[in-house]
Design a protein around this nucleic acid. Structure first.
Lengths: 190, 190
DNA sequence: AAATGGATACAGAACGTTCTGTACAAGAAT
DNA sequence: ATTCTTGTACAGAACGTTCTGTATCCATTT
């Protein structure tokens, strides 16, 4: 089963396009055939079952997300708050198309949660160590969650910020990230 | 069309149960018939189309959520950070069943976003005024978003905190909410 | 008061469509 | 010529909707 077949790439590209433009419900084999130019026979040859198609889609996007995060991490250099800021920047990237894709994929694989295990591992690797419940660790976690919340609330159409306000919010989150990563001053609450 | 019919209530209850226990994909008329005890004819009498069923489900839950939020608001009294803390408490309430219901409904109505307009209005009414991009307003928004992020990341299985850490996180969010609502001290960043 | 007509509320079966998975034949490539 | 790839057709199942039938209740009429 050639991993680099041209038809296979076309199918994956078309699948991603369908998901982000028309949602996961529109991702049927027939739509996929007309959209990709590959016939159903070719599609089922490369992806015998729909699960495998979804798996390949998740893997592809997981890989890209991981690369983006790594790029932002590298750009942050040795900044102690680097990883957290990189996460904020990655998650808050204002890309409605990609957001729709992520949201569509999540509802597509809602009944096969194990497909997201790789993504979960990647996410958890970004989490600060909150075992001790130090205030600064909790703040770092809160910043991560705020970035996640921004992503989802915008995706759901619940939040629509003017561009400049949005930029200031992200900047504020980065500032909070830096504060949470600052050298311990031991003046935490309780 | 009686709004208070017994069969109608049974159908709605069964629908909510199905969505939160088995997801939106399991919400079919047949499953609904066996689960509610009302036959398909009775179901289609009260809900001629599936859209209307979903609309009724959203309305019902929207009403309940609104009530919960109002209760938390009332409990917060005249606290200047009251509404924000009430939102944090409402959103961060650890109720996996209701979370699954919300998540399932969102994927069920993914293709009729207008069904959520009521929920959007309710959400936006909770938003702090960020028009001026003051640091404190941005902090208040960040707290809201962190509560939202907590909700979604837990729902997606990406985040699983030990109970005591989770409690401290929520407490920390409330503390940040209070700080964001504190009388202006004009020592903000930039 | 009894009878009647119609609207309301529900039951049960069936239809047409859509989707996934599979089978099989034909063409291209090595 | 054998293997890889694609095209076509179909089976089986599931889903939303529609259709017809039936029982119950209330208002009106006689």
């Amino acid at each position: 089963m050639a991993r680099t077949s041209k038809a296979r790439q076309q199918v994956l590209d078309a699948a991603a396009r369908i998901v982000r433009e028309r949602g996961a419900a529109a991702l049927t084999f027939e739509e996929l055939a007309t959209e990709s130019g590959v016939t159903r026979g070719g599609i089922t040859y490369h992806f015998p079952t729909k699960d495998e198609l979804l798996r390949a889609l998740v893997d592809r996007d997981h890989g890209r997300w991981s690369e983006t995060l790594a790029r932002h991490c590298a750009a942050a250099g040795a900044d102690p708050a680097g990883p957290l800021i990189a996460y904020v920047r990655t998650a808050s990237t204002h890309d409605p198309e990609h957001r729709r894709f992520v949201s569509g994929m999540l509802s597509a694989v809602a009944h096969q949660p194990e497909l997201l295990d790789g993504c979960r591992a990647l996410y958890r690797a970004q989490l600060p160590d909150v075992a001790g419940s130090e205030a600064r660790a909790l703040d770092a976690l809160a910043v991560m969650l705020a970035a996640d919340g921004l992503f989802w609330m915008e995706q759901l159409g619940f939040l629509e910020l003017p561009a400049e306000v949005r930029e200031r919010l992200v900047a504020r989150l980065e500032s909070l990230a830096r504060a949470a990563a600052a050298p311990p001053s031991e003046d935490s609450t309780d």
